[in-house]
Design a protein around this nucleic acid. Structure first.
Lengths: 305, 305
DNA sequence: GAAAACATGTAAGCTGTTACATGATTCG
DNA sequence: CGAATCATGTAACAGCTTACATGTTTTC
């Protein structure tokens, strides 16, 4: 399976531009190409050379030539041929398994900490899988196949979560309890759920954000409570978060964006200093992460739309 | 996770040469690099430059300098540091899902045929996962972690098989029954199991090998009967198999080698013609696939050792 | 009026693959 | 004695990624 096949597939029911293809690839949890321009435009060029697609050029007013690609008869034939090729084995790469077997003598705390982090990442990833139709007009059969495929992705994550529990049950008791050189502190975060007229969010009640890992904890908590809105009171914002040089704020923002989680932070104006001020202005404009001085305002924004 | 990390991990308990590393990577179902020279020798060069590994050179007699690599103290520290890095999400690429959703209107027969093929490949791959210790002296804890990791791989395949059954149950009834232009013939193969003093093999009782896909059918039958020995009577060897130009024999051989399945074919000498004769001589020498004129001989070879 | 989204493309670089080159040792 | 395995390395190339360049339209 190559990207050409994917493009032919996406063009099967509707004409699209290169940009449309890029968006479709980025959105889909099944199409695993990142949707980068280089590949797509090159592939389209080759497909057109081989006569499998044609482009109609739209000159809107002036120069912005937009090319709408669609399948030729040959393209349809080729897609049908590819559909009956011998299926490929899935490619599965789980770095975490290597990380574990190469780690050697972990003590109980260390192992539990690693498993916890992995659990949260998987949980977050599973939460982010959204069903979101590939084509507009799908037959019931196509719809069923598509839903089943999305299920497949979700189930892969689920069985990974089940496996982590199995490791907890089997391997944790065998791990040594002695402490190695440095003690690893595991500070748990706690959350509570708040519901206001059919809408709700979660709020951190204890724990401090100081680390990239804590970003994952936020996402995973959202997954657990099945919400994508989270309130961060001043008490849970660590000093590291406020120092841009530590990159903590940036990493956490990245996670929020990836998993489409909306976060409102309440920060006293005294705590917003130096470059962090610019970061706040920038973030407030963007959308998924905003800083408020006032709890009421924060809540209003979180719950809106 | 990069290949450097993997190399540090493999060297954790024992010194190894580049060649040893290559073998270890090729064997392991968890370490997903193909174990190609280019990467390994380059990585070793860099690791040595960074002072994370050292090599002792062995001059055996003349020139064949053999380099035994082992971890330095810095290397051990680096490995420990990497062990506590934030775990990465698994990378899962299932082409088959794309193949299905891009295939569009499949009728019942076509869908069932695709599912069948996919099922067999997964079954074969699961069959090929062998537990086979990474290090010699493993603590019970390390042993448990390793066994659990292998389980993880096997369970990924198992849950894929379960998913295929779900697709059969849900989507097959929705598929149209009408026949498209060309009818796809699905000829099932049948097998019987033969046991002789605690040892056994399976034999094809109906169906003909004519296709790369049939190679997968053989592997999948082996997985089902939990054997890696298979008898191919003359009746099941198609004419295409005997024509080297069709590549059928080559592809089937490839599958047998990949999955470590031993196959004995019984062929009358009249049927061995032209270039196929060379292929037979070549194959007989190699080991996993041999041709016999006589059933007795074939059985003896199959059951030996 | 500024930024985000739409739209098409290019360049440099990393990772990993196959294939080649070379020579020693071991094994049937 | 010939082949397979051991052992180290190189070359060329495919695939994919990040980042850059450029300009338009839409949206706040």
């Amino acid at each position: 399976m190559n990207i050409q096949h994917a493009i032919l597939g996406l063009l099967r029911k509707q004409s699209m531009t290169g940009y449309d293809l890029k968006k479709a690839m980025q959105k889909s949890p099944i199409i695993y190409w990142s949707g980068n321009n280089n590949q797509i435009y090159n592939a389209l060029f080759e497909l057109e050379n081989e006569g499998l697609v044609v482009s109609r050029i739209f000159h809107c007013a002036d120069s912005p030539t937009k090319k709408l690609y669609s399948l030729t008869e040959d393209g349809k034939k080729e897609l049908r041929r590819l559909s009956f090729e011998l299926p490929e084995l899935p490619e599965i790469r789980k770095s975490f398994l290597m990380q574990l077997i190469f780690a050697g003598e972990l003590n109980k705390t260390e192992l539990e900490s690693l498993l916890q982090q992995y659990y949260r990442e998987i949980q977050g990833a599973a939460f982010a899988v959204k069903e979101d139709n590939l084509y507009d007009n799908m037959t019931p059969f196509e719809q069923a196949i598509y839903t089943l495929s999305i299920d497949n992705v979700r189930e892969s994550y689920k069985s990974e979560l089940a496996w982590i529990d199995k490791v907890r049950a089997v391997a944790l008791p065998l791990a040594s309890t002695e402490n190695k050189e440095e003690k690893i502190e595991v500070i748990e975060m706690e959350f509570k759920s708040i519901t206001k007229n059919e809408n709700g969010y979660i709020e951190i009640t204890s724990g401090i954000i100081r680390d990239e890992r804590d970003g994952i904890t936020l996402i995973s908590a959202c997954a657990e409570y099945d919400t994508n809105k989270i309130m961060l009171p001043s008490a849970c914002i660590g000093e590291d978060f406020l120092q841009l040089s530590t990159c903590v704020a940036g990493h956490v923002m990245q996670k929020l964006t990836n998993y489409n989680v909306k976060a409102a932070a309440i920060l006293e104006s005294e705590r917003i200093r130096g470059k962090f001020k610019d970061f706040v202005i920038e973030a407030n404009r963007k959308g998924l992460f905003r800083v408020f001085e006032d709890r009421e305002q924060a809540e209003r924004w979180l719950l809106e739309e």
